[in-house]
């Protein structure tokens, strides 16, 4: 008993000293290499020149930093699926450890939630729910990795933009930022340097959900999934929810039902907006919070925000999937829902 207590005390002491050492290191680092005020750009920054033109739309394709994040997430998830989870599942075991166990537990939560709501359509809905959740979760938690959102190249476009918005602001060319290292003629820099300088840098990797293209794309997929499962479950009668011609023939409240159907169309499309902006707003706000707190109080304060963002990333991933699942389950039921969305 006494020995155990001594061990615990010793452990606690070590953790305390490690925390103190990290804080001291943070103070020294912030003093030597003070963080810059970040320049925040809403659109994703371009990392390359035009690579090719889209075949049909004719628009230019750049490699943006959010696209890099999505690709990394894709590679991570596919590698996880092919090289970790698939062999583990093939081994025929019933109980898993480590990351396979985590994935399995999350899938089980998703499965239970879906089974409680969707009934016989569970097996159709689960993969969509789970894919959305896993992709958004990976992409959201990427934001927490040091270097993401902060290490990148000086962005000429952003630089011009920043100068245009605020001519008084010093930009990188005026205050010399020490490059971390150089690839070819490109200087790789990090947010840091002199306090008066704005860092108009394009980070190599930026949290994908801070790009509206990503969230809108997901919301569009989710919207299409809802419509498709509605038609599969009810056939053409699914659209009666929107254009209720039969109700017109009925006396009394029939016309009101028809008008309600028109409103349903509006609310159906507003789902896309609310889905995409919810995820975008949460993660973009989190990114700004991390950057601003990091520059205002360079030492230790960011840890709390990181913990908050950890929770927000998980919740938003689950919520995006869960709302898709709930709306899909509603679409399979024939009575037209009273509350379609918020």
């Amino acid at each position: 008993m006494a020995k155990q207590e001594a061990t615990r005390k010793w452990k606690y002491g070590v953790n305390r000293w490690i925390a103190l050492a990290i804080i001291i290191a943070g103070v020294i680092a912030a003093g030597m290499y003070p963080p810059l005020r970040p320049y925040i750009s809403l659109p994703a920054e371009h990392l390359t020149d035009t690579l090719f033109y889209f075949p049909l739309t004719g628009e230019k394709f750049f490699l943006t930093n959010t696209m890099v994040a999505v690709l990394i997430a894709d590679v991570f998830l596919i590698a996880l699926a092919l090289f970790v989870i698939r062999p583990a599942l093939k081994s025929g075991k019933q109980v898993f450890k480590g990351i396979v166990g985590v994935v399995e537990a999350l899938v089980e939560v998703i499965y239970n939630l879906t089974a409680g709501t969707a009934g016989k359509w569970t097996k159709t809905i689960v993969p969509i729910f789970a894919t959305i959740t896993f992709l958004v979760l990976t992409v959201n938690w990427m934001e927490l990795i040091p270097g993401v959102d902060s290490i990148g190249v000086i962005n000429e476009i952003s630089l011009e933009h920043a100068h245009h918005v605020n001519p008084d602001l010093h930009v990188e060319t005026d205050c010399d930022i020490d490059p971390l290292f150089t690839i070819g003629n490109t200087n790789v820099v990090s947010i840091g340097g002199q306090p008066d300088c704005a860092a108009a840098i394009a980070p190599f990797v930026r949290a994908a959900a801070t790009d509206l293209n990503f969230t809108l794309g997901l919301a569009f997929v989710s919207f299409m999934a809802i419509q498709i499962i509605g038609v599969r479950a009810q056939g053409l009668r699914y659209f009666e929810k929107f254009i209720n011609i039969r109700a017109l023939g009925k006396p009394g409240m029939g016309k009101i039902d028809f008008i309600v159907g028109i409103f349903e169309i509006v609310s159906e499309f507003s789902k896309i907006i609310s889905f995409s902006f919810r995820l975008f707003g949460n993660i973009f706000a989190g990114m700004i919070l991390l950057l601003v707190i990091g520059t205002l109080i360079p030492v230790a304060a960011q840890t709390g925000v990181l913990m908050l963002e950890f929770a927000v990333g998980l919740i938003q991933a689950l919520v995006f999937g869960m709302l898709t699942m709930i709306f899909m389950a509603q679409a399979t039921q024939s009575h037209h829902g009273d509350e379609e969305h918020h």
Partner: peptide, 13 residues
Amino acid sequence: ALGINLGFLLVQV
């Protein structure tokens, strides 16, 4: 200004 681009949208989808 919002950075929405049909090409990127389709790529994401």
